[in-house]
Design a protein around this nucleic acid. Structure first.
Length: 251
DNA sequence: TTTACGGCTGACA
DNA sequence: GTGTCAGCCGTAA
């Protein structure tokens, strides 16, 4: 019904980026900023953060990769980090502007769904696929997240395998665990549940079933916690899906 | 237009 | 418990 292009054209222009000088408004610029695991290289365009990678990549490789991927050059920025970027990288609830104009519709849907995963919680790839409106495109979700232009800002480290293992990560599986622990996720507890084949946790007083990392699940007392190995098992026991973490239950 | 390739998943040894 | 395989699907070349 509404043409996305028209929507964008009709949108009010972004406020002037006072932290950028004229050059930065014409050409994307990269800068080096501290991140949770070490320094990062970040490309900032006039519309927001466009690209972020580990500084260990090396500046030359970083610039080359950016040029190849976005078909445009990137210069060293003379500006400072845009508003909100540094706090967001420190884990504070800050939302720097992110420019995903080059992403496809599917990529944007995947990144948007991933961005909705609360800090300290995890969701399976299949959950992201469902939230993105392509429930069977699980593998494709992995492909999108593997090339997430703005990791950390779009928290792809919170997307894990369906069996409870953490799965792979752009910066390495160990970094994924470190980041999650830094958000106070109970990585070891979740792994222990997964090892026992527990896929969902229910609260018998409410009949609501959650993904194990859901903040509601963490508050279930031992006396009222009910463990389920599958969604079908929870459904058969009369439980309904938590409205926050939205585990997939068969219809 | 076609093909190959994954940060996956579920089923079955 | 672990290993393998086929199926899945959006992208890039």
């Amino acid at each position: 019904m509404t043409d996305p292009l028209l929507t964008r054209l009709a949108a009010p222009r972004a406020p002037t980026d006072t932290h950028l000088d004229l050059t930065d408004r014409l050409v994307d610029g990269w800068l080096r900023v501290p991140g949770p695991l070490g320094y990062l290289l970040v490309v900032v365009g006039a519309r927001g953060v466009r690209y972020l990678r580990d500084a260990a990549t090396g500046e030359d490789a970083f610039r080359e990769e950016y040029r190849r991927r976005f078909a445009r050059p990137v210069l060293a920025s003379t500006g400072r980090a845009p508003r909100g970027l540094l706090p967001a990288l420190r884990g504070q609830p800050s939302r720097p502007r992110i420019d995903l104009d080059d992403a496809t519709g599917f990529e944007r849907a995947v990144l948007a769904a991933t961005a909705r995963i609360p800090a300290g919680e995890t969701r399976p790839y299949g959950w992201v696929a469902r939230e993105a409106g392509r429930p069977r495109a699980v593998r494709a979700v992995g492909t999108v997240l593997a090339r997430n232009p703005v990791p950390l800002l779009v928290p792809c480290h919170r997307v894990t395998r369906a069996d409870g293992r953490l799965g792979d990560y752009m910066f390495g599986a160990a970094a994924k665990a470190t980041l999650l622990r830094g958000e106070d996720a109970d990585v070891d507890g979740l792994a222990a549940l997964a090892d026992r084949g527990v896929a969902l946790l229910g609260r018998d007083t409410t009949g609501v079933v959650c993904l194990p990392s859901c903040h509601h699940a963490r508050r279930i007392t031992d006396a009222h916690r009910r463990e389920f190995r599958s969604a079908a098992e929870a459904l058969a026991a009369g439980y309904r899906a938590c409205r926050d973490c939205r585990p997939a239950l068969p219809a």
